[in-house]
Design a protein around this nucleic acid. Structure first.
Length: 641
RNA sequence: GCCGACGUGGCUCAGGGGUAGAGCAGCGCACUCGUAAUGCGCAGGUCGUCGGUUCAAAUCCGACCGUCGGCUCCA
């Protein structure tokens, strides 16, 4: 007999050789039905694993991350099986579980069409109905190579060849399908219940553009049909929050064929943008930043000196002025350096925090453009901090705190990554290590969780990146802090120290919003267009019910306007219902309905876009409250619209 | 840039070899109305661009441009 300790600490005794699934069934038939994989002494395994000794066991259902992953991963195997049944000769690349589903990359002479996704789905449902057990087979490297070689699965052969020497090589079979896989998997295909294939895309083998482009099919899977429906419904909802759609509906911005990736901001978008910048300027002034502005076009010599000419060439735009080469700035730093160099600096001045709302242009690949999120020109809320080596830690922490303050203000959740030295980099390994350590120490002293993003630093230094989510859960880098020992060297930046000698300052590049454009995109999706009053392009809509109240409504409007409230008067000869509907669609925070009663009493009937009819109040009371709400930059809830 | 799909009035979409259709928005008229669409009328499109096939192309074919979903890249 063996002793099995469960998650709750209870101990059960089973005969040696009992499988996990049998144990789950013994605990409760329902658990046996819902559990997908198990953790034995902390290691993930299949449920048909038989135990021969004492162990700590945790059963994992779809509610756990590991359970979901095994579930979706199993679905990807079923999809691969379906594809190979329907399209013999299709080669398998990789097929992992991802955040909300799974994908599989295929290499096939046949080009899959969207219509065929349904066929594949039907075949998958057949396989699910067949309820084929997933069985694990461990094999030696040679056996694995021979096996996949015989099946002409060259991608699998390549994967096996690259596996480290000490790893156990395993395959999973269901029916006549076999795939190289570490596992674990759910017990059988019948567990999958609800699968849906979502889209079709190209993807390079191993993510390298020099490799062959494969065909990737994305899908998702749930243990219950209702959950799948719910998920698909959520995706539909998310589309309604898409900033590209809301950008048109709310008339914030547009992108024209004449300038792909170069957004146009409309009057309402500019109000939003300027409010963000007002907030930004106030907060930066408080924190000791000065603001500068540097030119968009600068001489080639500058870009050669900064390293951009060598390391960033393919992302830049060029022009000639009087037979001399110039480039459009892709970054603000070189211009900023020139301002610093303009005069001598004493150690007493440091740190110098020099901010710039700089418009940069970058040649991004056409296929990557995406609304305001990825564009070819954008405004960075940049700043360069020049400092003594002894000030590095505090300055980095100061920026981390600033970013945190900004994101919390809008109610954003974010995650942090530390990006290290890329292949194409300037400077010695020692300097990179020193800079990377400084960033790491700052993160650790703040107790922040972060993920290492190896090889993703800027060419001149490592960086801390702050990532925000869009409506579909895709993440976008916004804030970043980059520690740079290169530029001060290249530009021969100095300060005069206590010893009256020249010394090299260290510098930080940092942005908080990242790109104003991208931030507005994220903000739009976060609030689903229902911006808090301080950001809303129109804050109040005044709507007389008939033209009898027009005179009083105009008076109300003038009063709001005089207080600096962004108000509009809807004097059109339309029903209130119609006016309200339109104002709601425009997500205007406050509507003031003005009828005979209000005109007589000097009140306004307040309707809030999220809270509905709030009843009549004295005009003065309403203005006092909204003025305070705007001044304090109060955040309404994102769910309100 | 690469793979795939798509491109019809301001927006959402129908049509699909014989020279364009709806709803919403816009404009005009009537209705004077109490918390998400009043009715009637009018106007608006060389069907992304260029080329080809055809007696005839929005429709079929090709190239290009743009958009969307990914890959790659990045704020």
């Amino acid at each position: 007999m063996i002793n099995i300790t469960l998650k709750d600490g209870s101990v059960r005794r089973y005969e040696s050789g009992t499988s996990l699934l049998e144990m789950a069934f013994d605990i409760s038939p329902r658990l046996a039905k819902e559990t997908l994989v198990a953790k034995v002494n902390g290691r993930l395994v299949d449920l048909n694993t038989k135990l021969n000794g004492d162990a700590e066991v945790e059963f994992l259902t779809f509610d756990s991350e590991e359970g979901r992953e095994a579930f979706r991963h199993s679905a990807s195997h079923v999809m691969a099986q379906a594809v190979q049944r329907l399209f013999p000769g299709t080669k398998l690349a990789i097929g992992p579980a991802i955040a909300d589903g799974f994908y599989y990359d295929f290499d096939s002479p046949h080009k899959f069409t969207p219509e065929e996704m349904e066929k594949i789905e039907t075949e998958m449902n057949k396989i699910i109905k067949e309820d084929l057990p997933f069985t694990r087979v461990e094999l030696s490297r040679d056996e694995a190579l021979k096996n996949f070689g015989n099946r002409q699965e060259q991608y699998k052969v390549e994967l096996v060849e690259d596996l480290p020497g000490d790893v156990v090589i395993s395959c999973y079979r269901q029916g006549d399908f076999e795939d190289l896989c570490a596992g674990p998997h759910v017990p059988s295909t019948g567990r999958l219940k609800a699968v849906k294939l979502l889209n079709l895309a190209g993807a390079y083998w191993r993510g390298d553009e020099r490799n062959k482009m494969l065909q990737r099919i994305y899908g998702t899977a749930f243990p219950k049909k209702a959950h799948l429906e719910e998920h698909l419904h959520r995706l539909e909802e998310a589309k309604r929050r898409d900033h590209r759609k809301l950008g048109v509906e709310l008339d914030l911005f547009s992108i024209q064929e004449e300038g792909p990736g170069f957004p146009f901001f409309h009057p309402k978008g500019m109000i939003l943008r300027n409010e963000l910048l007002n907030f930004w300027r106030e907060e930066h002034k408080k924190r000791g930043y000065d603001e500068i502005s540097t030119p968009v076009i600068l001489n080639r010599v500058l870009w050669e000196r900064s390293g951009h000419w060598d390391h960033y060439r393919e992302n830049m735009y060029y022009t000639k002025i009087d037979e001399t080469d110039y480039a459009v700035k892709p970054m603000n730093c070189p211009g900023g350096m020139l301002v610093y160099k303009g005069r001598l600096h004493s150690y007493r001045e440091l740190p110098i925090r020099m901010a710039e709302l700089g418009l940069v242009h970058r040649h991004e690949l056409s296929g990557t453009l995406h609304g305001l999120m990825r564009v070819r020109c954008f405004t960075q809320d940049d700043a360069h901090i020049y400092m003594l080596p002894s000030q590095i830690r505090d300055e980095i922490i100061g920026v981390i705190d600033l970013v945190d303050y900004f994101y919390k203000k809008f109610g954003f959740e974010y995650h942090v990554e530390l990006s290290t030295k890329p292949e194409k980099a300037m400077g010695s390994d020692e300097i990179w290590e020193q800079a990377t350590n400084a960033l790491q120490e700052a993160l650790e002293s703040k107790g922040m969780a972060y993920k290492i993003n190896a090889g993703d630093g800027a060419f001149y230094g490592p960086k801390i990146d702050f990532h925000l989510k869009d409506c579909l859960g895709r993440t976008w880098q916004c804030g970043t802090i980059q520690l740079d020992f290169q530029m001060p060297e290249l530009f021969d930046l100095t300060y005069v120290g206590e010893d009256n000698q020249k010394h090299r300052p260290v510098m930080i590049h940092r942005v908080v919003f990242g790109s104003i454009e991208r931030f507005i995109g994220i903000l739009t999706e976060h609030f689903a267009g229902a911006f808090p009053a301080w950001l809303a392009p129109v804050q109040v809509k005044v709507m007389p019910i008939t033209d009898r109240q027009l005179e009083y409504a105009e008076k109300v409007f003038r009063e709001l306007d005089a207080l600096g409230i962004r108000a509009e008067l809807d004097a059109r000869n339309e029903k209130v219902n119609y006016k309200i509907r339109e104002a709601q669609a425009q997500k205007i925070p406050y509507m003031l309905v003005i009828g005979d009663r209000e005109a007589a009493a000097g009140t306004v009937a307040v309707r809030h876009r999220g809270r509905g009819d709030l009843g009549a109040v004295e005009l003065g009371r309403f203005t006092d409250e909204i003025v305070k709400e705007i001044k304090d930059r109060e955040n309404s809830l994102a769910c309100e619209h």
